[in-house]
Each structure stands twice: as structure tokens, then as C-alpha cells.
Amino acid sequence: MDKLLEANELIKRYSQGNVISRAVLTAVDNVSFYIKPAEIFTLAGESGCGKTTTAKMILGFEDITDGELYHNGKLQSPHEKAWLTEGVQAIFQDPFSTFNPMRRVDSYFHETVQNFKLAKTKKDTIDWIDQKLRLVGLTYHDVAGKYPSEFSGGQLQRISIARALLTDPQLIIADEPVSMVDASLRMSIVNLFKKLRDELGVSILYITHDLATAYYVSDRIAIMFRGKIVEMGTVEQVLMNPRHPYSKLLRDSIPQADPKLRWSDTVTLAELEHEEYMRQGCRFAGRCPLVMDVCKTVVPPDIAIDDVLVKCHLYTEEAEA
């Protein structure tokens, strides 16, 4: 199978404190996944689950404590910048802070074309930029000479995607790209991802806490909890039939836009986040409704059931059978 990007047992540890007392926090703990060409892969989870740290490691903005990253089967060395060598680009959460308010938006486009030597003449440059902007439903004319404050959030997010497309990337990393876009414009961004995948064959690593759009747009999904992937598989399998108790909780906690699907049962909320990171065994054991003795001491293994990877002791027997 072709793998555009493969992460193999990525680990990120932060150490806090001083020389005398040091605490080590494992923000990303043995995370392995891969992304195929022309695929939208979702990394979902709550804040502090390590999904953004994972994205930063792939981009090279965070050092990798341990583990390997492969682009097209080639090991990425720590000094290589993925956006320079491997055609990886990124878009961000807040479209209003993506561009410097004191700079004209089109200057980013010209600069990118120049830095990556994408065109020779001025006319070629503008054609190139125009072509990319048209992919997101804009034209060079719409953007030329304007400052970020002259656009709406939805427009800026589309401009941001067009900028990422300038270098013809194979992979775009999108960190919560719609959480700050107006509700009425949200789907235009999400639909754009589908279009990029289907028409240009671009893969997207979609990082979100919104499982509803994740279900709508992506092919495969990994649910992260406190630094670990607890369940991974196709969105149909993982979201329509979640196996890990945490995936179930997360899936059920998405407020459904249907008054008939109101919550009836109550939830137990987390203890301090920090304590869950430090927990031995399964990190969800503290509030898992199906907790067993083994969960509190032994870290559950990755168990494969029907192409879905689940990190939970509940399925140990099933796997053995």
C-alpha cells in the first residue's frame, strides 16, 4: 500500500520544572498512523490530547523526542523542513491571525512563488496565483492589494488554503480549520477539502474536535486521548460503531442538531488533566463506565478487530479468540 506519510511510534515528552524537581509529561505517546495519497485522515480528540503537537512534529515545528516520520517511504531527518522538501503545507485555526494585519494578503502569494521559484515572469506569477485562487472560488483580482481586515473569516480561510496550494503540496495539515469560521460558511471550507482530495488528489490531515464534520468529510479517523490513539479505522466503523469507551463518550457528547436526540444520561467529568496523563495503565480508567481491575495497572495493547485498531482491555479476549 502506498503511504504518503507514515508516523511510527512518535513520542513527544516535555519536561517541566527545574534542576531539583523535574516532571516529565508525555504529550504524545507512541502514536503510529499513516496517510494514503488522496485521503482525508482525521485526528480527533479534546484539547490537550496531543493532536496539535503531533501536527507540529510532522511540520517540523516541534522536535520529535522519539520515533520516525516517513514521507513516501523516505525517513525524514530532523533538520529537513517538511514544507521545503516534502510538499507539506498547513492551514490554521484562526483565519484572522493567519495573515499579518499590517501586510497585504497578496504579498504572501508573491513571496511564496518567489521563494519556491514557481514562476519566472511577473505574468506567470500572477497566472499561477490566479489559478490557485480559482480552486477556492476566488480570483487574483479579488485579493490583489487588499489587507486581511477587508475579508470575512470564511474568505480568509479560503485564501489561506489557496496559499497552501501554491507549492502543489501532496499533504495539507489543517489544524481545527473550521472552528472559528462562521457556522453558515463552515461547510464551504469542508466541501473544499473534499474537492481538493477528489480533483487534485491532495491528502489532508484534518485535526478537529468536531466529530460531525469529521464524519462528513474524512475517510479514516484516529481518536486520541491523553496522548494516545485509542481507536483508529474508517469513519463509518469508528463513529457509527465506536468500540473504545472513550470514543463512545466523545461521540455521544457531540450535541446533535436534532432536538429528538437530547442527552438523557449524565456524564462523569475528568479529574485534573495532569493526573490522567500520569495515570498508570489505561488513562481513561478513572472515568470509564466499564472499568476492570486490569485497566488500572496494565496499559492496554493495540487490538485489531475488523480493520479497526482499539486500545482497550475489553477486546483482549475477542482478539485471542
Partner: peptide
């Protein structure tokens, strides 16, 4: 974020500091 945008656009450190 715009710092990252500039870096992803291939802008060097000196230019980044001066321009941004």
C-alpha cells in the same frame, strides 16, 4: 499564526523579523 504562515511561505529569518 502569521509567523508560521511566513515560514511556510519560505521566508527566511532576517526577512521575517524585518518584514513581519
Amino acid at each position: 499564526d502569521f509567523t508560521t504562515t511566513a515560514i511556510l511561505s519560505g521566508t527566511g529569518t532576517l526577512k521575517l523579523v524585518l518584514k513581519e
